[in-house]
């Protein structure tokens, strides 16, 4: 564990709490992509299968994994049941097949061994890197977002961005690198580039998140 990894994980945790806060306080899931949230559940469940297969990494690791699976399912419940009426499916029209299909193919092609759990792990890495697409698509379509929603997306982007120095650090200190996670992580962080630009230049200076026309 190094400081980049720790703060990356904390940013990831923060993103979930910000999302819950947004839904609970505004009593609405307006502006959020249900599809992105479903993809995160798929990501967590397929990646954290090792929880149920007896692989033990650490107490920290297990607690975090359980939290991410539990909280992401709870968010689906909030969006689908409790605040269903505030969700606008006509905005959330990104075709997730275009994300799941290629991720599955990449998972089958690039993995550390051709076993069920390793393929699913690899699939989850590729899928996570693009899971934010439906959410960014909504931002693009509406051209603006509530500030708290932008904080949520920023926390998610910061989480993956911090994993990059973590990998560099681990490469130097442990001599090990995880090429699948690194490539997908770089892609994922890159996807946030446009968003970050508007977020840092506008939202953090108290302005609304509005995309330039």
């Amino acid at each position: 564990m190094n400081i980049f990894r720790l703060f990356g994980d904390l940013a990831h945790l923060a993103s979930i709490f910000i999302l819950l806060q947004k839904i609970q306080v505004s009593r609405s899931c307006r502006g959020l992509s249900f599809k992105t949230q479903v993809l995160y559940v798929v990501v967590f469940v397929s990646r954290y299968l090792d929880l149920f297969l007896g692989t033990w990494v650490s107490f920290y690791n297990t607690v975090m994994k359980l939290f991410f699976i539990g909280s992401s399912c709870y968010i689906l419940y909030l969006m689908r049941v409790q605040f269903r009426s505030t969700y606008d499916p006509t905005l959330d029209t990104f075709r997730v097949e275009y994300l799941v299909g290629p991720s599955l193919v990449l998972g089958l092609l690039f993995n550390y061994s051709f076993t069920f759990t390793e393929i699913l792990w690899s699939f989850s890495i590729f899928l996570e890197s693009v899971a934010i697409f439906p959410q960014l698509f909504i931002l693009q379509r509406t051209g603006e977002a509530e500030t708290i929603t932008t904080h949520y997306i920023a926390a998610l982007g910061i989480y993956r961005a911090l994993y990059i120095p973590n990998w560099i650090y681990r490469y130097w200190t442990e001599g090990s690198a995880d090429p699948i996670a690194i490539v997908a992580g770089l892609v994922q962080t890159g996807l946030y580039a446009d968003f970050f630009y508007v977020y840092f230049t506008k939202v953090l200076q108290g302005k609304r998140f509005e995309l330039p026309a």
């Binding site: 990831h12 690791n61 792990w121």
Partner: peptide, 10 residues
Amino acid sequence: DEKEGKHDEL
């Protein structure tokens, strides 16, 4: 593969 089962990141 020694990588297998060593995914300690989240």
